[in-house]
Simulated scan of single mutants.
Amino acid sequence: MQIGIDSFVATQNNQDDATAVANLLDRIVAADEAGLDLFALGEHHRSDFLDSAAHMYLAAAAARTKNILLGSAVTVVSAADPVRVFQNFATLDLISNGRAEIVAGRGSFVESFPLFGYNLSDYQELFKEKLELLLKIRDEEVVTWRGKFRAPLNEQAVYPRPKQQKLPIWLGAGGTPASFVRAGTLGLPLMVAVIGGQTHRFAPLVDSYREAFLRSGHPETEMRVGLHSLGFVAKTSEAAHQGFYPGYKQMFDKIGKERGGAPITEAGYFAQAGPLGALVVGSPEEVAEKIVRHSAALGGIDRFTFQMDMVMNSPDGGGHEGQLEAIRLIGGEVMLLVNQ
């Protein structure tokens, strides 16, 4: 199983943004040195996160790393120009010598729609059309295409082409059943974001992905499932929760207030961090056991990624240094335990 980190480049209390970006690049280098398989960056257009142009950070990281895959988590295709998305990541692939990937998705925030002049009522149609074009550009050097939301392309060549013969494009999915079926029908690897609740509730959706994949005639060897979860690793369980919970509560209390939800309680948090909950927080042994349980619940997964951004604003045991320690523990202990 591949194991890596997803980051949204969260801002930190009382820290300037340039320092936050420098620390991010140091963490990507640390992940490469620790032997992690992947470091991926999301896309948001709000003050909490600095990842609106994630491919720029990934390109900087590509020049400082050797082996780690560099990807998106996710690229909000609905509000982007697929031509530019492909060009950006094809360029990253050249800089990194064939280590670029895309996770295409719709994201969990909607600020990008008004920012780039799109109507939220077109949410479904935008994603379907733009994903179709992105895949066509990936598969065909010279493209003829017509859609509703973008100017047509008539025998238009799109450059540069990536180093990899076929730039990897995963489809990111939350809890929408149609997204799982779409990924299978298109023959794309599937990245499942499990933020809350219990992971096993996604098992029927993952089954529908696998069924659609095989029913559509795609090679079973290309069928892959990844899992993105909030998590953190420290030397002891107590230290992990101490480093994770305060920042987790701060982040999700803010998001909950925006969306009309209730504040996070300590009891609710520990329910989520328990054996069946979605949070993957604890010592290396505890975390490895939970990843293995999550994999079994979904019929086996090929990739697991930690989202640790909320520890940036935990005053004790979190922050940049806490993430660096977590990365070392993931590479030095968790990966060995999961893959033994």
Rank of each mutant, 00 (worst) to 15 (best):
D207V: 08
D207W: 06
S208E: 09
Y209F: 09
Y209D: 01
R210Q: 00
R210N: 04
A212Q: 07
F213E: 08
F213Y: 14
L214D: 07
L214S: 10
R215H: 05
S216Q: 13
G217H: 12
G217F: 06
H218F: 12
P219R: 11
P219H: 14
M223K: 08
R224S: 13
R224Q: 15
R224L: 15
H228D: 00
L230D: 01
G231W: 01
G231K: 05
F232V: 08
A234D: 12
K235T: 12
K235A: 11
K235W: 03
T236F: 14
T236I: 14
S237T: 15
A239G: 11
A240L: 08
A240E: 07
A240S: 10
A240Y: 06
H241E: 13
Q242G: 14
F244Q: 01
Y245Q: 05
P246H: 12
P246E: 10
P246F: 09
G247T: 11
Y248L: 06
K249L: 08
K249M: 09
K249I: 07
Q250D: 14
Q250T: 13
M251P: 02
F252Y: 15
K254L: 15
I255L: 15
G256R: 07
G260E: 11
A262R: 15
P263C: 13
P263F: 11
I264M: 15
I264R: 10
T265C: 14
G268V: 13
Y269C: 03
Q272C: 05
G274P: 09
G274F: 07
P275F: 12
P275D: 15
A278Y: 02
A278P: 06
A278K: 00
L279F: 07
V280W: 00
V281E: 02
V281D: 05
E285Y: 02
E285L: 05
V287K: 00
A288W: 03
A288V: 00
A288K: 01
A288P: 00
E289F: 01
I291T: 04
I291V: 08
R293N: 06
S295V: 01
A296I: 05
A297Q: 11
L298T: 01
L298Q: 02
L298M: 06
L298V: 00
G300K: 04
I301A: 03
I301T: 10
T305W: 01
F306V: 01
F306W: 02
Q307R: 07
M308Q: 00
M310D: 06
M310H: 08
M312N: 12
S314V: 06
S314L: 04
S314Y: 04
P315M: 11
D316G: 03
G317Q: 05
G318D: 04
G318N: 06
G318V: 03
E321Y: 07
E321P: 02
G322H: 05
G322W: 01
Q323E: 12
L324K: 13
E325Y: 07
I327D: 03
I327Y: 08
L329V: 09
I330T: 02
I330D: 03
I330C: 06
G331Q: 03
G332I: 15
V334L: 03
M335H: 01
V338W: 00
